[in-house]
Amino acid sequence: MRLLNQTKAGFLKGAALAAALLLGLAAPAAQAAEGGVAIPDARFQHDRMLGTFDRAALQRGFQVYKEVCAACHAAHLLSYRNLREIGLSEAEVTAIAAAYQIPDGPNDNGEMFERPGRPSDRFRRPFANDAAARAANNGALPPDFSVIVKARPGGGNYIHALLTGYEDPPPAGVTVMEGMHYNKYFPGHQIAMAPPLNSDGQVQYGDGTRATVDQMARDVTTFLAWASEPELETRRAMGIRIILFLIVMGGLTYAVKRKIWADVH
């Protein structure tokens, strides 16, 4: 069956080539992780191939975001209604939304006004625009958090590392500029943001979890990972089903192929 051997060899070659192609692509991804220290793996359960989000961590993380980060960081692609997906009830979501004053208008007199938020509203932005955000933050622009985990090499591991990577005083021999802070994982190591999570118990968790700095960093990172990829769980669940289907389909197709080719060999 030389033909069979040939085709097998050909197929293997093809597979090897495809694999090599894909590996070649690791180049940009790996290179992007450059810029200093290796980022430790925080081992988030949602970073596993088939992992899902930890619902309790998501809700705690939202609390950290709301009470700490949201003072400066917008997440303008999120709506309050999205919080249903992290396990909050409709009443809770409505109450959370109603606690914010959302700019709306113009009214019949042509004036803008503020009204209590509704679940369909986008998260309220802390600043009216980027210029206002810079003005309030010594010229530094706090980035929007809607897709931050997708937008950083290293993803959630990087966010977690950054939040726990402050060192004060900085290592010997490093001069930190006025108004900057030393962070082991920030590219260039000098970050304008003061340590946002700075003391245990900064946030009072309702579920009794001890709010250590690391715990808060993990929780808020989990929340931000969900904010970046709210489709992640659906996507993986669908992926498993589709790939299983395709494997069966592949077996059947190959069997038919063998049958059809049987009289040629």
């Binding site: 992007a32 897709v147 997708k150 937008a151 090499p153 996507r235 992926g239 790939i243």
Partner: peptide, 17 residues
């Protein structure tokens, strides 16, 4: 399907987000 469902952003670049 593996790319789409399990590593959809692997071949992309984070900066484009």
């Amino acid at each position: 399907a593996f790319l789409v469902f399990f590593t959809p952003n692997y071949l992309g670049h984070p900066d484009n987000y």
